[in-house]
Amino acid sequence: MEDTSRKISARNLPMSFVLELHKVMEENNIFMVYEGDFSQEVTKTVLHFTERKFLADNLEDTTRRKIFNVMVESLQNISKHSVSGLGDESTTASVFMIGYTNNNYLVISGNPILNHVIPKLKDMLDKINSLDKDGLKQLYKETRLNSTFSEVGGAGMGLIDMARKSGNKLNYRFDKINDKISFYSLIAKITKIESTNN
């Protein structure tokens, strides 16, 4: 795309945008995008649609279950930790996407978070990414045992689980929006297992 910075507002939406968005999605193999408010109802709906697609595609069971698990944690993390009302609309809505590239399914989330939580979150993500399979298992068990309910999620169980189930490192990025908030992007990659049944 030659002009990605051009802002498109609902009041002035060129018809070509439908095709442009379609192209961006096709080029990046993004087959599901949801932007807006996240609630448990939205989580259920997104899971329902995606699961139907995977069943229709005859996706191998283990891969399908792993994607489903990672999606649940990703969606519930957005729902629990996203902040709103501290920037303009285009940067404070949250987004969730599913893509497929090079034999990997990508579970992608983007949401605004408060700047002051970034150091702790970054430490957690780096720690998770430094661990191997057994290390993650140990961290998961310790966190589950030691965290209280108010901390679940905040203590990073969701992230640890996403790393465990996906079997790959978590990719993340923080982009500063203003003095209060940043946009937090996270990608979990689930490598497709070839089906042996068919």
């Binding site: 698990n69 649940v72 589950r144 965290s147 309910f149 999620g153 689980d161």
Partner: peptide, 12 residues
Amino acid sequence: EYFNTASSKIIL
């Protein structure tokens, strides 16, 4: 069939 991390804690 599936359980999330919040459930994982309470199953314990």
